[in-house]
Design a protein around this nucleic acid. Structure first.
Length: 850
RNA sequence: GCGGACGUGGUGGAAUUGGUAUACACAACAGACUUAAAAUCUGUCGGUCGCAAGACCAUGCGGGUUCAAGUCCCGCCGUCCGCACCA
């Protein structure tokens, strides 16, 4: 860089160091419980310490920082903390692959990522930092487990897991690939294991109902949660079984189709299936085959639907002598309803596919209105209509038939109306080391015994090895050995740890008092909660957010909190994507190794191989299309990186990372810096009000617009408005327009404050201020300046644009008509025809119909 | 498979929520400055036809509602997210 360039360019590095030190010095971002100002709690989803920050983090934390800095300028007492979602599988994988202890790996990653986040200049209260893997955090989680247990919110029962028979270890769904263990390659089996469950289903109705109160959540997230909870009103019907004393309980939401039933199907895990399998090797084999699909619902649903005819027959409750074959079918989930259904192929697609496959009857019992010769082909009919082929239900509509059949079945004692939820209890036991230990012991005499508060924390042992698969806690005889809290005899510790979703279900509460001796300090929690603005990826729309909502209720029930809903406002951001590059052999190549060849081609920087450019995809290590934020910040500065993150793409949509985009942002930062640099000396020292109404309108319209956009999360629009204002100000002559330029530059500087905080401080100083933008108020606008005297409105003839007219604001229809008719394009389009109607929307449009 | 979203110039996108489609930015092209390049500044920039005025076409595809549709409704196509042990 030449001397000349140094003089004409914004020296971001010095600036960033200077202002970050100034903020730190003055403790600008430390939060206290100031009751004189309204509080505002801004939170971004805390990161998993995977190694280095990625662009997704940069985008997420930039958005949160814009909100935090903006709200601070608006006079709010802002809490904006940061922490680490530090337990999880990657640390154990690293331990196996790189022979490094999970704790060491995790804490080193945290140090790196904290340093990187600080480079961004975020307005975070770092004194509140927490890491979920630290005993100071997880001891409180253990305490709450004990409290929840006592409050009846937890129970222990058996649950299914994916079992790798070769590695003799439990696998996560993502570790099962095509039905095989990812390391061993062995076909997985389903196994029953004793597990702890949070009874989230006790709150199913409440979690559903309360969605209506979450007005500042995206509609799509509320809808997804609502569907996930999946309330259904149906009927539990008890079928008699031929040659058996017991009955088969099925659950259905379409009892009206009972006369179209042609089979029953039960889950491979249904007790009846197990019983029959005891005497049937073929059925046993079939059930084992189903188990190879693992526990993933997505896999089960996508697998080919297969069944096994048990030979059992269920008696139809209303048709004398009619019996239905009972199948064991791989798509029936034991977790939903009763684990058994009756199938009506004509009116359910899955049942129809099954019936066609096994050649079962397809009898339509609901016919759409005004239809003759109704037949079912390859598509089931699930719409409304009249009942037919259904004895006493004939002629009724679907709703009436549902009600009638329910009445009859209840009266006959063959079943009951039942509300069901798709939502299942939350299994929290994990057979892994790097998680929060579950604070219970197993005693031969007393059974499962919870520890007491005095025994906490149960700390993970450090001396563990990962040289073989399985949970190291399980083989740690010293750590496991403990005296039973009840009888004092030797007992063993529970070796399962918590699902990491437990850690992230209450961290927002812990941030309100991170040093408290109890899980929360109610004074602080009641002051700060709920989170006013939460920001994170859409991928967490269901599980993390639903678990957190449950957890808050559980904390309230046990006295650790005082409200049900932890998150008042939610925003879900899009992902960061980048083009992908591949060699002819199909190997992925990093963007750093790409150079442009002749024409529109790209070649490998080192090997010179020709490369194909693939479409933009989510940045991922596997496709090597990642850009390291630290490289970008070092090259262009934090403000440029932040500005690019906010420009162009709407925050809820995916953002395409491009070289052109980041250099464009860099050029803008410099352009603005030069504008102030070149005009600062010519500006009046005492602010005066300019007579230039046009420019002042532009300035105040920008302030009004940016304010509105920031409130609505339209950051890309704020950026466009700031571009426009800077373009306008650039055209001014500092010597003659000094007063209005001064007003404009002061406004721009404060408007970019939340987005490019270092540059804003730098410009503020250049404009002669000794205060900090970080401690300044948000600029106000004068609404009276925004009113325009005349408006330009569109003129249409029969809905087609024919020109525009400029008339007075709120002009009468007569004025608008006269102006419109005077347009040659209008008279030409009318061609002498009679005018039938004129539609006039003041300040918008006039439409002449002929 | 089920549930949820998204689709506008060469590119990212804007559109007062049913009222002038393409703001703002990028890329490209032309010019100025420069020995030259970079940087910077100025101009052009949806498509077709036309010297021009202008006309016609265009918001994934096909229908519909309306004086008026990117926006609302119906049906397709494509892409993405979630599916309970990844975080």
């Amino acid at each position: 860089m030449s001397v000349d360039e140094k003089l004409s360019r914004y020296a971001f590095k010095a600036s960033e160091d200077r202002w970050q030190a100034a903020w730190e010095d003055r403790q600008c971002f430390s939060a206290g419980e100031d009751r004189d100002r309204p509080k505002y709690y801004v939170l971004e989803m805390f990161p998993y310490p995977s190694g280095r920050i990625h662009m997704g983090h940069v985008r997420n934390y930039t958005m949160g920082d814009v909100v935090a800095r903006y709200k601070r300028a608006r006079g709010f007492n802002v809490l904006h903390p940061m922490g680490w979602d530090a337990f999880g599988m990657p640390a154990e994988n690293a331990a196996m692959e790189k022979k490094v202890h999970p704790a060491e790996w995790t804490y080193a990653n945290i140090d790196t990522m904290r340093r990187q986040l600080k480079m961004m200049g975020l307005s975070i209260d770092w004194s509140r930092e927490i890491a979920t893997c630290h005993p100071d955090y997880y001891r409180h989680e253990q305490q709450m487990f004990l409290d929840f247990l006592e409050a009846g919110l937890i129970e222990q029962r058996e649950g299914w897991v994916n079992w790798d028979p070769v590695d003799r270890t439990v696998l996560a769904n993502e570790q099962v690939i095509d039905g095989k263990g990812w390391r061993s390659g062995a076909p997985v089996e389903k196994r029953r294991l004793s597990q702890w469950f949070f009874k989230i289903t006790d709150y199913a109705q409440d979690l559903l109902d309360a969605l209506d109160t979450l007005g500042r959540w995206p509609e799509k997230v509320r809808l997804m949660q609502s569907n996930w909870i999946g309330r259904s009103e149906g009927l539990r019907i008890s079928f008699e079984l031929e040659d058996r004393d017991d009955r088969l309980e099925v659950y259905t939401t379409r009892p009206d189709t009972i006369f179209g039933a042609s089979f029953c199907a039960i889950s491979p895990e249904h007790p009846v299936a197990a019983q029959l399998a005891a005497d049937s090797a073929v059925l046993t084999e079939f059930i084992e085959e189903c188990g190879k699909l693992g526990t993933s619902e997505a896999v089960i649903e996508q697998a080919e639907k297969i069944g096994f005819d048990t030979g059992l027959r269920a008696r139809h409750p209303f048709v004398n002598g009619k019996t239905l074959p009972v199948y064991v079918a791989n798509f029936i989930l034991m977790e939903y309803g009763t684990g058994a259904i009756f199938g009506c192929p004509a009116h359910d697609q899955r049942d129809l596919d099954f019936a066609r496959k096994y050649d079962l009857d397809v009898l339509p019992v609901v016919v759409p209105k005004d239809t003759e010769d109704f037949v079912i082909g390859d598509e089931a009919y699930t719409g409304s209509g009249r009942l037919t082929n259904s004895d006493f239900l004939d002629g009724l509509d679907v709703e009436a038939a549902k009600s009638e059949i329910a009445n009859r079945i209840e009266a006959a004692g063959h079943g009951t109306r039942e509300v069901n939820f798709r939502l299942r209890d939350w299994g929290i036991s994990r057979q892994r080391y790097w998680g929060c230990p579950i604070p219970v012991v197993h005693c031969d005499d007393c059974g499962v015994v919870p520890l007491t508060a005095a025994d906490l924390p149960v700390v993970l042992p450090d001396d563990v090895s990962f040289d073989r698969p399985g949970n190291p806690l399980d083989r740690h005889e010293v750590w496991k050995a403990v005296d039973c809290p009840k009888c004092g005899k030797p007992a063993t510790r529970e070796t399962d740890t918590f699902d990491t979703f437990v850690d992230s279900s209450w961290y927002f509460a812990r941030f309100t008092a991170p040093q408290a001796d109890a899980p929360t300090d109610r004074n602080a929690a009641d002051y700060w909660l709920p989170v006013d603005q939460y920001i994170g990826g859409i991928e967490h729309a269901i599980l993390h957010l639903l678990y957190s909502r449950f957890f808050m209720r559980a904390m309230t029930k046990t006295g650790h909190a005082g409200m049900d809903e932890p998150i008042a406002g939610l925003f879900t951001q899009g992902m960061i994507c980048h083009e992908t590059y591949q060699t002819e052999a199909g190997e992925w190549v990093e963007p750093a190794n790409i150079v442009e060849g002749d024409g529109n081609t790209f070649i490998h920087a080192e090997t010179g191989e020709p490369l194909t450019v693939g479409r933009s995809e989510k940045m991922s290590k596997s496709k090597k299309n990642v850009i390291d934020p630290e490289d970008i910040i070092k090259t262009y500065g934090a403000d440029t990186a932040r500005w690019f993150m906010l420009s162009d793409s709407p925050p809820d949509r995916d953002l395409d990372w491009t070289e052109a985009g980041i250099t464009g942002a860099w050029r803008f930062a410099n352009r603005l810096w030069r504008l102030v640099e070149n005009s600062a000396d010519s500006l009046p020292t005492e602010p005066t009000i300019s007579e230039n109404a046009e420019i002042r309108r532009a300035i105040h319209a920008a302030i009004a617009g940016v304010t509105e956009d920031l409130e609505a999360f339209h950051f890309n629009r704020s950026v466009a408005r700031i571009h426009e204002l800077v373009n306008t100000l650039s055209d001014l002559e500092p010597k003659t327009d000094g007063d209005v330029l001064h007003e404009g530059l002061e406004a721009v500087t404060r408007l970019i404050g939340p987005m490019m905080p270092h540059l804003a401080e730098e410009l503020w100083k250049m404009l002669g201020h000794e205060t900090l933008v970080a401690e300044s108020d948000w600029p106000a606008f004068d609404a009276s300046l925004l009113v325009q005297e005349t408006v330009k409105i569109a003129v249409q003839v029969r809905g087609k644009m024919r020109g525009t007219i400029e008339i007075a604001n709120d002009a009468d229809q007569a004025v608008a008509e006269a102006a419109a008719m005077a347009l040659p394009t209008v008279t030409a389009a009318l061609d002498g025809d009679e005018i039938k109607k004129i539609i006039y929307v003041p300040n918008r449009i006039i439409n002449v119909i002929h």
